[in-house]
Write a protein that binds this DNA or RNA. Structure first.
Lengths: 244, 244
DNA sequence: CGTGGAATTGAGCGCGCTCAACGAAGGTGG
DNA sequence: CCACCTTCGTTGAGCGCGCTCAATTCCACG
């Protein structure tokens, strides 16, 4: 569970169009924190006086219901920020893997800095935009019909955000329980869906934490541009697997 | 399906802390558009040269998969903006009810305006923040276990965003099909869940489009602050309905 | 080597989807 | 005016998927 190559200390964000030189000054007053699996990073994200950035490992934004069921509303991978959506609900942030490294930036200082440096303000806007995209993608994943499609879409989403090793494998920095709580499934169903995807040749598994996508088209089932009026109830979910 | 009292032409946003006087100047160059049910407002939200604001009625942000299934990733009620999350996926926006009125603001003009007027920039930030909150709430709704809880949470969410009439009823500006595609359920299941909630005294229905919440606690099943480690598979979903 | 958590697999069952029928409401044209 | 049609909404019957409970294996760690 070491640091992946892309998640080093410098503020190199994945494919973001921000000039790193203007942001690198932020790390001057950023504490560097180290957490182990399950440790709480911040009790109430909305009330935190800091913004955070995941450097290595993984964190999860979660909420526990009275029923005891835990809902994970976000997985934070290296490069992701959190704590800057002020008026959101009260979510707890925990480290999901050992050796999770997080940098914290004092909120007050960044907000004043954003008022003078327009590049900082632009950077904050891009963070919000990226968070919106991530949440929309999560909604699309949660809206899939079957468990295999949910798990498959999730793996595709993770593939786009993590780097492969030299053999092409991607390391999942989370447990099956995390996946289950993120997807709204049970652990057993997640495990069964992974086995099903492996047997059908859609993905490949190496151990329990490494995978690779073999047939992305079989998962995506893309989208057609137009908008059907959806007046015929029988037309839904006919499950064709046509390539576009 | 007329305009609700709160959704008049002036830019009064629900409980937002923005001074309306600084934003009212935006309506000077905003076209006012009128749509009927099912009509397409904007084919590709990300590529649109305009931002939009719903004045009356309702719009839906949707995507149609190859299977024919339609996924609604957002319901846009009076006061909601859309079109400003630039790098999001390509979603189609349609009017979901007759007499939907939308104002459109040229994107280029607002962005240049935001560079000179910090209040406009602050307003845009609050829009992003609000959108993030809405998406997180939708994720929480989609993550509920049973259909009745999904429908109930959805009604609670709608109640917070719409106004009651003098008798305390809330008018649903959408069909059962829209609710089903929003919640990832079938129309029949939505209908059954509504009947179940009505029979149990949780909600009251007047006709097919009016409702009111009678027992919000029975739906919410709130959240406890702490974070269980969730290492015991048996502790999930024990379905207690304790009041806090 | 023993231990405990993680992961997988199987058996049984309940919830939600599918298919179907029916009723209500609105529109159109005779 | 009523006959006819379409769309929406509700309810029932049957079934498949995912949850629950349980057993087993795997693996990291002391």
């Amino acid at each position: 569970m070491g640091e992946s190559p892309m998640s080093d200390e410098s503020l190199q964000l994945n494919p973001r169009q921000i000039s790193p030189c203007s942001i690198a000054s932020l790390d001057a007053f950023a504490a560097r924190l180290h957490y182990h699996r399950g440790q709480e990073i911040c009790d109430d994200e909305a009330a935190s006086p800091c913004w955070f950035r995941v450097v290595a490992g993984m964190a999860r934004r979660s909420m526990v219901r009275l029923s005891g069921r835990r809902q994970i509303v976000g997985l934070l991978l290296p490069g992701d920020f959190f704590g800057f959506s002020s008026q959101s609900k009260s979510f707890a942030i925990e480290a999901a893997s050992d050796d999770t490294i997080v940098r914290s930036y004092p909120r007050q200082r960044l907000e004043t800095l954003a008022q003078t440096d327009p590049r900082i303000a632009q950077f904050i806007r891009s963070l919000s935009s990226e968070m919106i995209s991530g949440l929309e993608e999560q909604i699309l994943i949660l809206g899939r019909t079957t468990a295999a499609k949910k798990v498959g879409s999730f793996l595709v989403s993770v593939t786009k955000r993590l780097t492969r090793d030299q053999a092409g494998w991607i390391l999942l920095p989370m447990s099956r329980y995390d996946m289950a709580d993120y997807l709204g499934l049970s652990v057993e169903t997640v495990s069964r869906a992974l086995s099903e995807l492996r047997k059908s040749g859609t993905i490949a598994l190496a151990g329990t934490r490494q995978f690779r996508i073999l047939d992305a088209d079989a998962i995506e089932e893309g989208a057609v541009g137009g908008s059907l009026p959806r007046t015929t109830p029988g037309s839904r979910d006919c499950e064709v697997t046509v390539r576009v």
